[in-house]
Amino acid sequence: MTVEERVKKVLIENALKDVDPKELNQESLLLDYGVGLDSVATLELVVALEEEFKIRIDENDITPETLETIESISRHITQLI
């Protein structure tokens, strides 16, 4: 699986459980689905990404821009791998 596919999987399994995976593409605006709206949910997503990629992510580095799309999250992850 590519980084983007794995990010999508984490999103579907955590923050976007009620969303049809087919609805989401790399450029979908995640804020429209509530991602990044709530700091606790964001933290849970960050922890799930850490678990998936076995990396350490500093939540202070996570900006609204980082969480904008699957592509932007993947870009951030790729820098840390």
Binding site: V47, A48, E50, E51, K54, R56
Partner: peptide
């Protein structure tokens, strides 16, 4: 919960 799941190097 979050601390328990936090990845530690």
């Amino acid at each position: 919960d979050v601390l328990a799941k936090t990845y530690l190097s």
